[in-house]
Write a protein that binds this DNA or RNA. Structure first.
Length: 564
RNA sequence: GCGUCCGUAGCUCAGUUGGAUAGAGCAACGGCCUUCUAAGCCGUGGGUCGCGUGUUCGAGUCACGCCGGACGCACCA
């Protein structure tokens, strides 16, 4: 933010002055600490604060309060000189507090100037492009063998929100879905559908041991029968398995894409595991065999991952010649690196954490910088209904699917709830609460703020109260107005932080706090019935507020209704 | 047994590279609608930040050790 830049420069100028004039001594190897400006926890501590004096106490060998005093004097005299030379002043005062905090109190005009720029920026919340480095985020990547369940839902919400937030922060992000369409689970899908198919026509069949029991397999089978009837009955078992497997795969993928689209989740690339078999897998294995990372033992091929800190070596190709999942994953990640991403982010369920070491080991062994691969973990979701834990299991078919969740609580509430907590916390999802269309439900609280603003605009439009071309923001002096303005000024920093930490819950929190400040403003400051210039300035303020609420909700994939 | 994550108010959770008197929501209690949506606002009570030791000007935050919970530890994915 612009204000921060002014402050940072003032502080670093002052610090450098101290060093150049020998007031503080800096040893050869010492470096000035980063100047960190934060909005203090309490209003009494000013508009911005820095702990710079405390941080630099060590290298200056001086106590923090003394440093703080010197800095304050220098910054104030610099500011005075600036003022005398006719430049606009920005500093009200600096106070030293606590163990050596510098608390800055700014001239209100600085805030108004900044806010005016925001008001005139239709794209506020979209930061400038960082550079052209491509970043990939891969998430969900559920097997196309059943419906998405709530755990996938959390991953889908988190991944899509992270992608949205990173794009808003100016990163060049590509969202990818890895389709596990090879291997055992696809055979099991074929066998399961085959069994249901024969069952449908009253053939006596035993349901496969590793089959998928869930009801959606029957749905898939019924759709296939509706289109193709009984014409596969007379095929040989192998032929029937093949064709039913293919048809089921197509059906499952289309169901999956439908659910994700309904959940406001979109991918740029759908990457099929099949494209890795067998050539890309074989060539990756060959490289690793040639450089000694893969060796043969007991008729199988093993990755020497213990060399990279793993508990044990891992099988890459089974005794029977079939590659393991890891083999495909090595080829897949090799492919990712070859596509030139500067950063590769995977979002995995926490139950896969044991997998990181071996994949990174393989990437290092292939000569890639494994640091570029970053794996984010998503802890488990526990559903509660009526205070009771709802167990979920894809195998038995007793799971709650994402589809059911969307139907039960709505997309907005589902996404918002998934994004309220940090990813590494286990999530207790209270279905009853999410379903409530009441104030207990935080998603409505935020949406209501937006709807309220829209309602005001509907009425002011009718009453011909408009926003002036150049509203006089100096009129916004009420503390509720100042608080709201400050929060809005903070927005792009919040996006930056949320993007850097891959932390959508920061955005959720921000938009909630923004809504709370708007509701307080609504209580204190009327628009209809006040003097014209003030009404105009306030309308401008809530226009920007609505823009930011909508923008932030958008990043979360939650709608911003105009009336509720 | 080993590994990853978590442990903060009665409940669900925030807590910004270590910083000021640890914060929200829900639940409880008490107020506020003839004025832009009360799906809102204001107030009150509520804490051994799991326990212990260490690192330092300063620890909810970092390190180590315990205790408790979730998840993982396949030639499954």
């Amino acid at each position: 933010m612009q204000i921060k830049n002014i402050l940072e420069k003032a502080i670093s100028d002052a610090a450098n002055f101290m060093i150049e004039n020998g007031i503080f001594k800096l040893n050869e190897n010492d470096k000035l600490p980063e100047i960190l400006l934060e909005v203090p926890p309490k209003k009494e501590f000013g508009d911005f604060a820095t702990n710079f004096a405390m941080q630099s106490a060590k290298i200056f060998h001086t106590n923090p309060k003394k440093i703080a005093e010197e800095l304050r004097n220098k910054i104030e005299s610099d500011h005075l000189a600036m003022k005398m030379s006719g430049k606009t002043e920005w500093l009200e005062k600096i106070e030293i507090a606590g163990a050596g905090f510098l608390n800055f109190y700014l001239k209100p005009t600085v805030i108004y100037d900044t806010f005016e720029k925001i008001f005139n920026n239709e794209n506020y919340g979209q930061l400038a492009n960082k550079n052209n480095e491509k970043i990939q985020v891969e998430y969900v990547s559920a097997n196309p063998t059943g419906l998405l369940h709530v755990g996938h839902g959390r991953g889908a919400a988190a991944g899509s929100a992270i992608v949205n937030i990173m794009r808003a922060a100016g990163y060049n992000v590509e969202a990818e879905y890895y389709i596990n369409d090879a291997g055992n689970q696809m055979n099991n899908l074929a066998k399961s559908v085959n069994a249901r198919y024969l069952e449908h026509f009253q053939k006596n069949v035993e349901f496969p041991e590793d089959g998928y029991h869930a009801a959606d397999i029957i749905d898939t089978t019924e759709r296939i029968i509706q289109e193709h009837g009984d014409k596969f009955l007379n095929l040989s078992e192998d032929e029937r398995l093949k064709i039913l497997g293919d048809l089921a795969y197509i059906d499952k993928m289309s169901e999956l894409k439908k659910d994700l689209a309904n959940f406001k989740v979109n991918f740029d690339v759908w990457f099929s595991e099949r494209t890795l078999h067998p050539d890309k897998i074989n060539s990756a294995i060959k490289i690793l065999r040639d450089n000694g990372t893969i060796y043969e033992k007991d008729g199988a091929l093993w990755l020497n991952s213990t060399k990279y800190g793993d508990d044990k070596d891992r099988v890459v190709v089974r005794e029977n010649g079939e590659p393991t999942y890891l083999a495909a994953d090595i080829a897949y990640h090799k492919n990712k690196f070859e596509r030139g991403f500067e950063k590769i982010i995977n979002i995995w369920g926490a139950d896969h954490h044991g997998y990181v070491c071996r994949v990174k080991a393989a990437m290092s062994a292939l000569g890639f910088d494994a640091e570029k691969l970053q794996i984010l973990f998503l802890q488990m979701v526990a559903l509660y209904r009526g205070g009771e834990l709802v167990k979920m299991s894809k195998r038995t078919g007793n799971s709650i699917t994402l589809r059911e969740l969307m139907e039960e609580v709505g997309t907005d509430a589902a996404r918002y709830f998934f994004l309220m907590r940090s990813m590494e916390s286990q999530l207790d999802f209270d279905l009853d609460l999410a379903k409530k269309k009441s104030a207990d439900n935080p998603v409505y609280y935020v949406q209501y703020a937006h709807a309220r603003i829209c309602s005001i605009f509907r009425q002011t439009l009718e009453m011909k109260i408009f926003i002036d071309e150049k509203p006089n923001f100096n009129l916004l002096t009420h503390s509720s107005e100042i608080d709201l303005i400050n929060k809005i000024i903070d927005y792009e920093d919040e996006i930056e932080k949320a993007a850097q930490d891959y932390a959508p819950q920061k955005m959720t929190r921000y938009v909630y706090e923004l809504a709370a400040l708007f509701h307080a403003f609504y209580r204190d400051c009327r628009i209809i019935g006040v003097e014209k210039d003030l009404a105009s300035a306030r309308l401008a303020l809530i226009k920007v507020t609505a823009h930011v609420i909508k923008h932030a909700l958008n990043l979360l994939g939650v709608s911003a209704p105009e009336s509720m």
